[in-house]
Nucleic acid binder design. Structure first.
Lengths: 177, 177
DNA sequence: AGATTAATCGGAGAGTTCTCCGTTTACAAG
DNA sequence: CTTGTAAACGGAGAACTCTCCGATTAATCT
């Protein structure tokens, strides 16, 4: 259905009809629209998590943290682009969903890598800040309205990650908490 | 109505009823839900733009670019927090709206400052990347689920901005610790 | 098998967002 | 004041998300 009509323009009524069940059944299984989208994302998400948790370097363990961070952001962009429509849907749903499930895993992973690359930074915030630009809608906007390519986006992220991992080693000037 | 029922839980049917007009009129005036929200945001947005375009430094012109960047991000956080519910609504609406209007102005402004602070960076992307974490839903999540304070969020952004403006002066690749 | 209980199902319905179009109002010309 | 035209109006209705609950099916016990 998504291949045919796009990820938007899909009503759960129709999903139920096509599946040959009642609407209630769909909602009991998946909770709500967001739950259904999450389920559709789940397969690739598992593979992705497998890859950065236990796959070959530089995405998986073995490479230095700074390299893994870049590799992770790079792969995350691919991940989002591969199911862009679904991720856009996900972000439209209630805020409960946007920052749960996959996001938390990504955040923990990135924060762990950041802890190695730049120990004295606020790694929880920094992880949020690096994940924030990898956002289906922003990427769509950058592509469509700014004419950026995926390569340029990845390059920008890589540069940002580099600057961050290097820069945070040096305590900045007048910053206080 | 927002003060009473919160920014969600407001139906345009009811807005129309309270306003004493038909639903059609509301939609003709504002286009859709997003348009109404934008209108509600507009007043404070104008003031904010006035402040960073022509107000006193460090937010307005006069201070060095690096300081203005920090001041801008700081003020933007306040701006979003002040109308957090409305911004969350805005982000839920179609992607047409999220990256139009205010966002573009903020982006142009920040990109201009970045051009002064770190000329050789991809300032269009960098501006997106710095704006991305200043996001009503992310901030709400950081506050509620991570227990972060606004002060901590601002501090994190300030540090990030510092590292970015300093770090991008050095061409990437030959990075040292 | 028959009866009792629990889990599952499906669709009617409430509450929304947004569109469409017949009706009403405002305004200018005769 | 009347008439003609354009703009503004408002509510019926289509399409949608999600809930609720009576009906159906499956499982367990006697």
């Amino acid at each position: 259905m998504i291949a045919e009509h796009g990820a938007d323009n899909i009503s759960l009524d129709e999903v139920a009809r096509v599946a040959g069940v009642g609407v209630g059944t769909v909602y009991r299984r998946f909770g709500d629209r967001a739950g259904l989208v999450l389920a559709l994302i789940d397969d690739q998400e598992r593979q992705f998590q497998e890859a950065f948790l236990a796959g070959p370097p530089p995405l998986g363990p073995g490479a230095p943290a700074a390299e893994r961070i870049t590799a992770f952001l790079d792969a995350l962009v691919d991940r989002v682009v591969a199911q862009q429509g679904l991720f856009v849907q996900l972000e439209k749903c209630g805020k409960t969903i946007r920052y749960s499930g996959p996001y938390r895993v990504h955040h923990v992973h990135l924060a762990t890598l950041l802890a190695q690359a730049c120990p004295q930074a606020d790694r929880a915030f920094l992880a949020d800040a690096l994940l924030a630009p990898v956002n289906a809608r922003l990427i769509a906007f950058q592509q469509e309205e700014r004419g950026m390519t995926i390569g340029e986006i990845k390059a920008g992220l890589a540069q940002l990650a580099t600057v961050v991992t290097c820069g945070y080693s040096v305590p900045p000037g007048g910053s206080r908490r």
